[in-house]
Design a protein around this nucleic acid. Sequence first.
DNA 1: CATATAATTGAGAATAATTCTCAATTATGT
DNA 2: ACATAATTGAGAATTATTCTCAATTATATG
Lengths: 155, 155
Amino acid sequence: MKIHKGHHGNCCCGKIRGFGRRITPARHAVLDALSTRGEHLTAEDVFKASSRRYPNIGLATVYRTLELFTKLGMVSKFDTGDDKARYEFADGPHAKGHHHHLVCTSCRRIVDYTDFIKEEMDLLHKTEEGLSKKYGFKINSHVMQFYGLCRDCAR
Amino acid sequence: MKIHKGHHGNCCCGKIRGFGRRITPARHAVLDALSTRGEHLTAEDVFKASSRRYPNIGLATVYRTLELFTKLGMVSKFDTGDDKARYEFADGPHAKGHHHHLVCTSCRRIVDYTDFIKEEMDLLHKTEEGLSKKYGFKINSHVMQFYGLCRDCAR
DNA sequence: CATATAATTGAGAATAATTCTCAATTATGT
DNA sequence: ACATAATTGAGAATTATTCTCAATTATATG
Ligand SMILES: [Zn+2]
Ligand SMILES: [Zn+2]
Ligand SMILES: [Zn+2]
Ligand SMILES: [Zn+2]
């Protein structure tokens, strides 16, 4: 079986196997879809893209796979106010590609941004620490998103 | 018509009227539900609560009303990862009661917190300004949420 | 390699939150 | 009180997601 060229050139199979889960063509197809089709993909997007490489894949499998990858921390699932979940490869809070989203509430455009990420991270760390202590939560992730109108929609 | 005792003792009717929309018993019932039944309410929660005061209200009306109030900025709609939208009175980014959420991914408990809000606000302002300039977005709102395990679920 | 076993799959049905439709009702300005 | 447009309730429709289940397949083991 061909080695999957993962998100950052690494193979994700180890992570999957490490969890006692199997490597399958369907999962490979989803991985490929995520790495080649960009970000902010709906399940339907991923389904279409994976179907190209693996025409028999079922939509339910795509959902199951995305759920699995999300649980493994390889994928981040978020929503932007329409009623579809979005998926993209997760660059964890500490990784290089970590970014947040700017969403146009009119045309649904999504802009990734990394500006201020450093400051955000500092604050997020501080907050996580403080909240963990105060409320006894073990914090695993966060969502930070801005909503507004893009240039085109604003006028 | 009796004056509605709003969120902070003010009447919200002005805002509704100001938008050319009408004051109706259904809308009053939803306002009351939101102010007396607390926060993080699902549409179903709001429906049940409003039904007490106004038994004939329909679920679709509740949805329409919540959508209207959200558009008017009186209500904030958010989701916490299950597939139900949550609604609560909006204390705008600058208002006293503005808070963020800590969500337990296991039992779905939601904790409001206001700690670090000051610092968050400073950063958010800075970010909003920066992003507005750079991407031409007119930013109206943000979501900031932490996910993790509450004390009970963590052990 | 062949075999055994449990994980995974595809297809379609089922679910559930939300939106839509439409005739009937009602709030509001005059 | 009247005219008019907004709003409503009820139920049907929609749609993203999950579930079911028999068939297939990945992997470990010898
Ligand atoms: Zn736009
Ligand atoms: Zn992104
Ligand atoms: Zn919990
Ligand atoms: Zn809250």
